[in-house]
């Protein structure tokens, strides 16, 4: 067995994102957007450099510490909703709380129910995840990402699998939740028009980032 081939995807990038900021990450396929998201989400470690989430240097954490960080401070929204079909929408939205505490308190449940109501899916909270539409599934997935009141939500093309109306609705909701919940959103997207509505746009090219202001 030879040494594994090492490919440098991101090259010495350096940025800081403020609390409550909405950042769009754009770039060609294979430019390193997902790698950046995985590193920011403590799913992957950089080969060099420092990544600090809410003041915590992720390189100092072991696998359990990284899991706690993901549960406590980071929320994920994927292109596919990835809801668990065996569970109801409410249970899916409460899943990060189940993971950290084993069960949700009545306060947690009331708060998450209110969030589901807020994004217009409160009425389907008791339905199984595979019994609702794609747009509704993605809204539930957004609330799941917010249920633990994280500092940072990472969204990997969250509207990529939706029709244009649902796509606009979901994006609008994410923007509103950023303001209401005071959470930082970093969203990878191929859609330039959506990206323009972010506070800042990180464009990744050849492993390097250029930052520009959005039009919002």
């Amino acid at each position: 067995m030879g040494t594994p081939l090492e490919v440098e995807v991101l090259k010495g990038i350096d940025f800081r994102v403020e609390r409550g900021e909405f950042v769009a990450i754009v770039g060609q396929s294979g430019s390193g957007k997902s790698t950046l998201l995985n590193i920011l989400g403590a799913l992957d470690q950089p080969t060099s450099g420092l990544v600090s989430i809410d003041g915590v240097d992720i390189s100092t954490l072991d696998s359990n510490g990284l899991a706690d960080l993901r549960n406590d401070k980071i929320g994920f929204v994927f292109q596919f909703h990835h809801l668990l079909a065996e569970f109801t929408c409410l249970e899916n939205a409460l899943m990060p709380i189940f993971i950290s505490k084993g069960q949700a308190s009545s306060e947690d449940e009331a708060r998450v129910k209110a969030l589901l109501e807020r994004v217009g899916v409160g009425h389907i909270a008791a339905k199984k995840a595979n019994q609702i539409s794609g747009g509704q599934q993605q809204r539930v997935a957004i609330i799941r990402a917010l249920s633990q009141q994280p500092s940072l939500v990472l969204a990997d093309e969250p509207t990529g699998n939706l029709d244009s109306k649902s796509s606009k609705d979901v994006f609008r909701l994410m923007r509103e939740m950023t303001k209401e919940q005071g959470v930082t959103f970093m969203m990878v997207t191929h859609d330039d028009r959506l990206a323009q509505q972010a506070d800042r746009i990180f464009r990744i090219e050849d492993g390097l980032i250029t930052v520009s202001e959005g039009s919002s």
Binding site: G41, L69, R70, H82, M95
Partner: peptide
């Protein structure tokens, strides 16, 4: 994939 999602939400190996 579900396991991956659970782990991204902070589920630990032992869980």
């Amino acid at each position: 994939r579900q396991i991956g999602i659970l782990k991204s939400m902070g589920a630990k190996d032992h869980q």
